[in-house]
Simulated assay, not measured.
Amino acid sequence: MRRFLSRRFPLVVLGAAALVGAAFATNYSLWINGRTGGGVAGNYADFTYWGPASTAAGVNKKAVNWDGYNHISDQNYLIRNALDCYCTGTNWCYVAAHSAGDLMIGYTLSLYGGSTRYKKNATPGPDGSCANSDGSTQTGWNIKWVNVAAGAGGGSELANAGDWALSEPLVSDLKTGTARALYDHNNTRAKMFYMWAGSKGTLYSFVLPGQDDEAVAYHSAGGISGSGGASYCNPSDWFCNDLTLGTAPAEGGKAKWSNHSVVFRDDAEAYNHYTNGNWQGTVGLVRQDMVNNAK
């Protein structure tokens, strides 16, 4: 015998289901460290690299720790674990990266951003991985945008010159020619990379071309394309092409990588590369932007 149901009933059920789904949708702020590391891999509450964990740094902040020592390719599974945990299913992420963390997230999106990912439950185990939520999959990750402080996606001449320990596998990745050939920097899977470039550099100015923050030059922090680094500066420097704001090519016509936009150029030469264990340098500017916009 056919059971009678009001036409309203399916609508009520669907509406409730939608509300339940919305209730479990969560946004997260993922912070990807650079060289030297410091936090425990898989512990998303360990902000040792950045500064006090009590400091506001975007909605539901998570520290995506990797060792900052080994090759990008060897440590990349840790970033994929975090993205699977927090950026699949109904959950979305904002990503912040510092220094070699730029190389790490760029590598991840270019090589794996089009791969099939299982939707996860956002409840990590001790190793930082999460269990499948319902067995379904999706393509890539739900990322709203990427903020980059002092990005090393274009490498650093300090790695070329041997100013950093040559025994570190990561240093070989950070050579300008290697970093720029490590993956397709234009392939961000349509995610915007917003770049903060500091220029309070003095110690290594004879090694780093143009303006620098003592670790990376503007060509890298500004997302300038090409196979090698070149000199880019603030408008006050008459002897060097300007690093332009936004996505426009730099003075002289060199393009930025696709979906890379300079939102801060350190015209006052006030910000260096280092967090100093207290969210300092250009990281401090990115942190404030995450507080304001990663919600």
Rank of each mutant, 00 (worst) to 15 (best):
M1H: 14
R2A: 13
R2I: 15
R3T: 15
R7T: 10
P10H: 11
V12A: 15
V13D: 07
L14P: 11
G15Y: 02
A17I: 15
A17V: 15
A23Q: 08
A25I: 04
T26A: 09
Y28N: 01
Y28E: 02
W31P: 03
I32L: 08
G34Q: 05
T36K: 08
G37I: 02
V40G: 08
A41G: 10
F47S: 00
T48H: 06
Y49K: 01
P52R: 10
S54H: 13
N60V: 03
N60Q: 04
N65Y: 00
D67M: 06
D67Y: 06
D67G: 06
I72L: 11
S73H: 11
S73T: 13
N76F: 07
L78D: 01
N81M: 07
N81W: 09
C85W: 00
T88C: 04
T88A: 04
N91A: 06
N91E: 03
Y94T: 13
V95E: 03
H98R: 00
L103W: 05
L103A: 12
M104P: 00
I105A: 03
G106M: 02
G106C: 03
T108W: 05
S110D: 10
S110G: 06
T116P: 05
Y118S: 13
K119E: 11
N121P: 03
P124Q: 03
A131W: 13
A131Q: 14
A131P: 09
N132I: 08
N132K: 12
N132C: 10
D134R: 04
D134Y: 07
Q138P: 01
G140M: 02
G140V: 02
G140T: 01
W141Q: 00
W141L: 01
I143S: 01
V148C: 07
E157Q: 12
E157W: 11
L158P: 00
A159L: 07
A161D: 10
A161H: 11
G162H: 04
W164N: 12
A165I: 12
P169V: 05
V171L: 09
L174D: 01
G177N: 14
A181M: 10
Y183H: 12
N186R: 09
T188M: 05
K191A: 11
F193M: 07
Y194I: 13
Y194M: 14
W196V: 05
G201M: 06
T202Y: 14
V207R: 01
L208A: 03
L208K: 02
L208V: 05
Q211W: 15
D213M: 01
E214Q: 14
G222E: 00
G226H: 10
P235V: 12
P235S: 13
L245W: 08
T247D: 10
A250S: 11
A250Q: 07
K254I: 14
A255N: 12
R265C: 04
D266M: 01
E269K: 15
E269H: 15
N278V: 09
W279P: 04
L285I: 02
N292P: 10
N292L: 14
N293D: 04
K295I: 12
